[in-house]
């Protein structure tokens, strides 16, 4: 009899503790602060940006055509873009979503060219990235544009200047 009581007691303790943990996490979810330790406050958004992100009524999907086998400089660009979007997502309550797309990932040549065509019809022209490597030279098509469909409205934004490509060489 005593052992059954003990079993009950430890079970109740465990369930109570789990409930408390869940409750604490829910409370923490609404009351939170972020401390940006980086020297330049790289991952902090301005108050107005936070407000804009917080007041979003609908989901915004960012499609970023920058992925795949990239040189280190572009990988860094991709990562920091992702980090910035993550920051926005935190304050938008998940109203900001993003996906990174590798335009040249499709193994089917026809479909790949189709995608290129679609993108350039929308006004996204590829940047031909030439890079010197140890093994010689390689050429890559890089689409550095983002599509921002808002309420079925798509905004295009090219955020790579050709000059930057030249500098990266």
């Amino acid at each position: 009899m005593a052992s059954r009581n003990l079993k009950k007691q430890s079970l109740i303790q465990l369930i109570l503790a789990v409930l408390i943990l869940v409750f604490v996490n829910i409370v923490a979810g609404s009351l939170f602060t972020r401390f940006d330790f980086t020297a330049e406050k790289r991952y902090s958004l301005s108050t107005s940006s936070k407000e804009i992100a917080g007041n979003l009524k609908d989901v915004i999907l960012f499609k970023i055509y920058l992925d795949g086998d990239l040189p280190p400089g572009f990988k860094r660009l991709r990562n920091s873009t992702r980090e910035l979007l993550d920051e926005y997502r935190v304050y938008s309550g998940d109203n900001i979503q993003y996906e990174f797309i590798d335009p040249s990932a499709n193994p089917d040549e026809k479909e790949k060219i189709n995608l290129y065509k679609q993108l350039s019809e929308k006004g996204l022209s590829p940047t031909n990235l030439e890079e010197r490597e140890k093994s010689g030279r390689s050429q890559k098509l890089v689409f550095q544009e983002r599509l921002l469909p808002i309420n079925r409205v798509q905004l295009l934004y090219n955020y790579l200047k050709v000059k930057l490509v030249q500098n990266l060489k």
């Binding site: 979810g29 939170f32 972020r34 330790f37 991952y43």
Partner: peptide, 15 residues
Amino acid sequence: ASLSRGVIDTRDLVY
């Protein structure tokens, strides 16, 4: 993800 970049979010610590 955000902790590794040096951004300490209280929610992540609580988690």
